[in-house]
């Protein structure tokens, strides 16, 4: 076994030199103190740690850590594992951890945020699967208030072409339905009763009317045609009243009723398209809209 020591210096000489420089040659107590300090230099070499032992001798650890210091030079075999950079002490480990702490925390925060957002998005289905049924049923009967004017919502009928063709009959047809409907309901009793009663008591009245009628229609008979004529003219005389009634009925339709009824009217209009001209229904609709 060979132990290496460093005997190139004489510490006693150093102590003497020190005391000589300080001018303290006759101070035995000081010399003892310095020699006690000198004994620090003869402390045994500490047992090498794992990394240092590997650097020193490689596989010499078989003899145990204490013996390794002495036997290392003789039986040591270099393994080439000298570049082991593992942190040997606790401080090194902590430093390494501290070095990567911001990155680790950042990654953890980002992962947590991603998981949270993903969980919320996954749990709330929203309308991703389509509008729910209750919403469809709510929307179905609703039409926005501003749809009164826009012609784009008026049925996709060939509205662009139809006005050219059917503008003329419209004013004629407008009172007609009202005139036709009204006599049936309200004026029918009046028309039914007077023809039976009027001709007998009021002989003058027909005669007063007759010349005009005779002028207009000389070919027609006097008795029979009069009744239909009067029946036919009474609505004309009452037509202002009829218009009033229709005019009265219009305001009764509040905007709300109108909105509610608009789809119905549109549907009716669609249904009547076969019988009536499109222009008539459209004009009527626009009239209502205004």
């Amino acid at each position: 076994m060979m132990r290496w020591d460093c005997k190139d210096i004489d510490r006693d000489a150093i102590i003497r030199e020190l005391m000589l420089e300080a001018g303290l040659t006759d101070a035995p107590a000081l010399a003892d103190s310095l020699k006690a300090l000198e004994s620090f230099a003869s402390m045994p070499a500490p047992v090498p740690g794992p990394a240092l032992a590997a650097m020193l001798a490689g596989t010499a650890a078989a003899a145990g850590p204490v013996a390794e210091v002495g036997t290392a030079p003789g039986i040591g075999i270099a393994t080439g594992d000298l570049t082991d950079e593992r942190p040997v002490d606790e401080l090194g480990k902590r430093r390494q951890l501290r070095k990567h702490r911001p990155a680790v925390i950042g990654a953890a925060v980002l992962t947590a945020m991603g998981l949270g957002i993903g969980g919320v998005a996954a749990s709330s289905s929203g309308f991703s699967k389509g509008t729910p049924d209750f919403m469809q049923s709510l929307i179905s009967g609703w039409a926005p208030g501003w749809t009164t004017a826009p012609p784009s919502l008026v049925p996709p009928a060939p509205a662009g072409d139809s006005p050219k063709v059917t503008t003329h009959p419209a004013p004629v047809d407008l009172p007609a339905p009202a005139a036709e409907q009204e006599p049936v309901i309200a004026a029918a009793p009046e028309a039914a009763v007077p023809p039976a009663v009027e001709p007998s008591p009021d002989a003058v009245a027909p005669s007063a009317v007759e010349p005009i009628e005779a002028k207009d229609s000389p070919s027609q008979g006097a008795g029979r045609p009069e009744v239909p004529k009067t029946v036919h003219t009474e609505p004309k005389a009452d037509s202002p009243g009829v218009f009033k009634q229709t005019a009265d009925t219009l305001p009764k339709w509040g905007s709300k009723d109108f909105r509610d009824g608009l789809p119905q009217v549109l549907q009716d209009g669609k249904a009547d398209l076969a019988g009536k001209s499109q222009g008539a229904s459209l004009r009527w609709l626009f009239g209502l809209a205004r």
């Binding site: 132990r3 290496w4 020591d5 460093c6 300090l37 004994s39 620090f40 230099a41 003869s42 402390m43 045994p44 070499a45 500490p46 090498p48 240092l52 650097m55 020193l56 001798a57 490689g58 210091v69 290392a72 030079p73 040591g76 075999i77 270099a78 000298l82």
Partner: peptide
């Protein structure tokens, strides 16, 4: 001879270094 050199240096100076650091 790396292993022998390292061991020699360690044996020669480790005690002194330990004493210096202790002091």
């Amino acid at each position: 001879r790396e292993a022998e050199l390292f061991s020699a240096v360690y044996q020669a100076f480790a005690g002194q270094v330990l004493g210096y650091l202790t002091g």
